[in-house]
Structures are given as C-alpha cells and as structure tokens.
Amino acid sequence: MTDLTHPGYVRPARRATRRAGAVPGSGIGQGGLALVLLLPSLIILALFTYGPLLQLGWDSLQIRQGAGAGGATVFAGLANYEAVLADPSFRRALINNLIFAIVTLVPSLGLALVFAMALARSSRLNSALRSMLFFPVLVPLVAAASLFLFIFLPGVGLLDHYLGRLVANPPNWLGDPDIALLSIAGVTIWKNAGYYMLFFLAGLQSVPPESYEAAHLDGATPWQRLRYVTLPYLKPTIAFVAVIALLNIVTQVDHVFVLTKGGPSEATNLVLFYIYQQAVESYDVGRASAATVLSLLALLALTFASLGTLERAFGGRAA
C-alpha cells in the first residue's frame, strides 16, 4: 500500500500494459497460453461477476406481469428506469447520499490528516495512540453499529448520559429526521478515520526531511509548512484516499440497516438501501435491478473520473 504513493509507481505499470497489449499480435501460441493462464480467473469472474451483471441488466428490462401471475415477467423496455427516476424516494436517497458523502468525506479525511501529522514521528506513545485510533477499523461495521445503537439511546445511552450533564435536552440522535443522517455520518467517520490515517502516515514518509529543513531556514510558519511543503507532497495520497472513501460511502450501508432502517421519514435512506427496499419490501426485482444498474453506472463514472484524477496527481508530481 505504501508503494502506491511513490511517485514512480504508475508510470512503469502503464508502460507494462502497453507492452502486454502488443502480445496477441505477435503470435497465436503466446495468446493461447495467456488465455489458458487467465482461464481460471476468467471462469470465476464469469460465474460470479459478469454472469450476474448480465442477469441484472436483463432483469432491469423486465416487469412483473401483475399480481396473481405467479411472478411471470414481460419485457418492458426502459419502464423500470423511468419508474425509478420518477420515484421521489429514489431522488431522496440520491440527495441523502450526496449529503452523506460530503459530511463524511471532508471530516474523516481532515481528521485522518491531523492524526497522521500528530503521530508521524515514531515513539512508543505514538505507536500506542496509532493503534488506538486504528482500533475502530478492526470492528466490523455491523458490530460497530450495534455498539452505537446503545450509545445513541435517548436518555439512557452513553452519549446522553454524559451530554445530559451539560445540555438540558440532548437531541434524539437517531429519531430526529434532521439529525439522524449526521449521526450515521458520525459513526462512519469514527469507523474510517483511523484507516485513512494509515495512508497519510505512509504518505508522510515520502516527504523529504530536507524540504522541511529548507522551509524552516526560510522562516516558514507551521501553517506555511503545511500549505507549501506537506500538502503538495501528499497530493497523490489525498486523491487515492478520497477515491477509497467515496467508494466506501456508496457501498457500505450496514449501519443504516442496524441503526435506522432508512428512517425516520426516509431521512437516512441511501441508494443501496433503496435498492434493498425495492427488492425485498416491494418485491419488485425489475425496479431494484434498474436502480442497481444506475448506481453501478454512477460508480463506474466516478471510478474513471477519480482514476483520471489519480493519474494526474501522480503524473503531476513526477513531471
């Protein structure tokens, strides 16, 4: 993982890809060998990834033939997509996801950076603190959410127990539609900040000490050192962590299941949870599939965009 942040990492890899691309033209034997070598993973991918993807695409174009037809379906074109896009619950989930992404991403990255800079120097105390901050990463998200179910309990929970001494009426953390999403974001930040800290710790190792010395000699303030020395060196790491964090936000809803089930009043309904609701609660596989295809497309677009950013970040440093 540390090597990913190394400036020279991407370039050779890209060259290697280009060379590999030239192989099939050079001889069928070699191509055949490559195919044979790839076959095991190809079979597994086909069975568990591409196959289901095709099935998903097909299901998203089907519509149930009404009640009593025993689950028979007919081809319906893009009707499911239209229904999903017109569904206010889907739009609500989309907006919730955007808000959730912003209020989770920015603080967790910021905290991770602060932790990493505070604990960058290796000492016995620092490594103990690092382990402590990393600890939430080791707790499975479902277990963490169950813990927070207790922490957030109105009146008797751990949070209200202490907060109650300072504030007269602490908010209903999971039961108030204005606050529930923020509470969920809080759990996510608590869970992930330690993980991102690791990447930043690794990234900080690549900042040459001479740069700091030079900055010091020039009389740079701590803020200027951060702004003009640390952050530019960390740019690739930040880009990388941002992509990981974004994917985590879209693909993890375990805590929503445990804490709020999307409520109250759909305030914590995220896109992935919406898909679950369509498939399970409404028993509408077509709509669930359409919503899945839409979110997969969004994820793909996001990944390509961020990979582009990543390459630029790495490339920019090397040039």
Binding site: L153, P154, G155, V156, N172, G263, P264
Partner: peptide, 19 residues
C-alpha cells in the same frame, strides 16, 4: 411523551431504567 422516533428497544430500556 418524548418527540421524534423512539425505537422499540429504546422504549423498553427507558422503561426498565425508570425514565
């Protein structure tokens, strides 16, 4: 009665805790 949504287990806990 408390406002907002209070889940079933939270209601039980609050009752058992005398709140």
């Amino acid at each position: 009665t408390p406002g907002g949504v209070v889940a079933g287990p939270a209601v039980t806990t609050s009752f058992l805790a005398g709140q």
